[in-house]
């Protein structure tokens, strides 16, 4: 079974040379730490920066340079700043190659819910609805089950949706899964996790074809 770092490491392998990537808050943010060093990638943050670098050294924080998680950041050579409309032109206009975000639920038809628990948590969708409505290439990073041990990979989402039919790939602590017309297709198992364990933790239709390889991280 993977921890959050493990999920981030596995997703980092999906990041290809020349990609512009938008990372959501939480596990997705960690992905930046594990991208291969021999490829060129630029990270976009929807509050208006392309070419994000690491956190600043202590004493060098700038209130005017933050990411969408409101954390202080730095920029790399070649970086640019822009306004919110242009930022979402990059996203809506499909100029961003890969979007990695977290989710509370994903359904076997690719629906995603990650912004609201009615009556309990209402923080808002931020840029998530724009991202999932437009991105061609969306990877969801999440734990396979919630804190109560219930599956987050469902036949149908029970929470208010963020987007419909948009998720292509899911990387969890247990598995790598592709969303297909027929349901969740199991691609890889996490180290030392059996297909049975994954099956048990997946409420939606799980398609298992042939030998399922173990992830290489």
């Amino acid at each position: 079974m993977l921890d959050k770092t493990g999920i981030a490491k596995r997703i980092a392998k999906e990041v290809k040379d020349g990609y512009y990537v938008n990372l959501g808050i939480g596990i997705p943010t960690l992905v930046a730490n594990y991208v291969r060093e021999d490829i060129e990638v630029e990270f976009q943050s929807e509050n208006g920066v392309l070419g994000m670098g690491p956190f600043p050294f202590e004493g060098e924080e700038d209130a005017d340079v933050i990411n969408a998680g409101k954390q202080t950041i730095t920029t790399l050579p070649g970086a640019s700043f822009f306004d919110s409309a242009m930022s979402f032109s990059m996203i809506r206009g499909q100029h961003v190659d890969l979007t990695i975000l977290g989710a509370m639920e994903v359904a076997e038809n690719g629906d995603i819910a990650n912004w609201k628990i009615p009556g309990k948590m209402v923080k808002g969708m931020g840029g998530a609805m724009d991202l999932v409505a437009s991105a061609e290439n969306i990877i969801v990073a999440m734990m396979h089950t919630n804190r109560a041990g219930e599956s987050k990979l469902l036949k149908r989402c029970s929470l208010p949706l963020t987007g419909v039919g948009c998720v292509k790939k899911i990387v969890t602590n247990l598995a790598v899964i592709e969303v297909t017309d027929r349901g969740f297709k199991l691609l890889e198992r996490a180290p030392e996790v059996s297909v049975e364990t994954i099956q048990k933790a997946t409420e939606g239709t799980l398609i298992i074809e042939g030998d399922i390889p173990e992830m290489v991280i």
């Binding site: 690491p54 956190f55 600043p56 050294f57 202590e58 060098e60 924080e61 209130a63 005017d64 933050i66 998680g69 409101k70 954390q71 202080t72 950041i73």
Partner: peptide
Amino acid sequence: EKRIEQRTVRSR
């Protein structure tokens, strides 16, 4: 005041 909401730094 330009308050920082999430002060995140890395160590030298």
